[in-house]
């Protein structure tokens, strides 16, 4: 009983994920600042932002539904927190079962759908535009993302993340067999997180704030927290699926390696947002269906042939 509560609230769920989420946001912002030759925020900035948002007045425009507007950010936060519970951290996972990869992928899609709903139920014109765009973007990146993430599962002949990790300990890291899949998964993750350069649904210069234009105060704080934790869970997932090395007996070394891999992927995400300009939605759809989907299919074909 206490064990379960500890897993749920402290580690690897709840508190730990919130902490890592805030740390991720700071790291990302600081790295971007360094790439752009700025000073960047101090380490406590994300926490300070969150506290500030929660202490602010919570406004909802006339005609908005208070219940739905409150539920949507909480729903996406819960979904990503639950997803984080099933992703192994440095090989440690409290609950593992055959098929947890599919559950995580499902839970990771919940914030996108909630984001779409948040836009479409709002009466603001920018929110509706942003909501529609988020769904369009979802159809562009989700297919290559899912195919890329199923590559390791096919290669390991297991739909549990722990099984995939174990397969990597014997076969070798999957990034060596499917580097293409790794890149595609990263691109998909950027699209899922609505990060620059695929921040089309929330592009400031085009649709102001996207779906979140009319949100304020604590609700906006929950949205930001959910996005950060979603990023962390996504990065943990990619580390587990593609970057599992040999089984390390020493837990400290394992944690260190895991942390370094985390840093590398955050660095890749930050440099991607520093390098690329935002695409137009038609350009993204073209990129998704003309380039990413064929590439991911080629990757999965290669994996299947390798398995045979």
């Amino acid at each position: 009983m206490f064990e379960a509560l500890f897993y749920l609230l402290i580690f690897p769920g709840g508190f730990f994920l919130v902490l890592v989420g805030l740390g991720f946001e700071w790291l990302d912002r600081k790295l971007l600042a360094l790439f752009q030759r700025r000073v960047g925020p101090p380490w406590y900035q994300p926490l300070a932002d969150l506290i500030k948002l929660f202490s602010k007045e919570d406004l909802l425009p006339k005609g908005g539904n208070e219940l739905v507007a409150t539920l949507l950010p909480l729903l996406s936060l819960c979904a990503v927190l639950v997803a984080g519970l099933y992703v192994p951290i440095a090989g440690f996972t409290p609950y593992s079962f055959e098929g947890d990869l599919i559950v995580i992928l499902f839970l990771m899609s919940v914030p996108t759908l909630a984001y779409y709903l948040a836009g479409i139920i709002s009466i603001g014109i920018y929110s509706i535009l942003g909501g529609g765009r988020s769904l369009l973007q979802y159809f562009s990146y989700e297919v290559p993302f899912l195919i890329a993430l199923s590559g390791p599962a096919v290669l390991a002949r297991s739909w549990s993340i722990e099984g995939i990790l174990t397969a990597q300990f014997t076969l070798g890291s999957f990034v060596l067999f499917q580097p293409l899949g790794f890149i595609l998964a990263l691109v998909g993750l950027i699209g899922k997180l609505k990060r620059d350069p695929l921040d089309i649904p929330s592009a400031k210069s085009e649709v102001v704030g996207g779906s979140l234009t009319e949100f304020s105060g604590g609700k906006l704080g929950f949205w930001h927290l959910a996005m950060n934790i979603q990023a962390v869970v996504g990065i943990f997932l990619i580390i587990n699926l593609f970057l599992g090395w040999t089984k390390l007996a020493n837990p400290f070394v394992a944690i260190l390696v895991f942390f370094l891999e985390f840093l590398v992927i955050v660095g890749m995400l930050s440099s991607a947002s520093a390098i690329f300009a935002r695409l137009r939605i038609d350009q993204l759809a073209g990129l998704g269906w003309r380039i990413l989907v064929p590439l991911s299919l080629a990757q999965i074909l290669f994996v299947i042939l390798m398995g045979v």
């Binding site: 600042a33 360094l34 752009q36 030759r37 700025r38 000073v39 960047g40 440099s271």
Partner: peptide, 13 residues
Amino acid sequence: IFEALIKPPETVD
């Protein structure tokens, strides 16, 4: 951008 990493920031704290 990678040159910018080793250069000092241009903004003032």
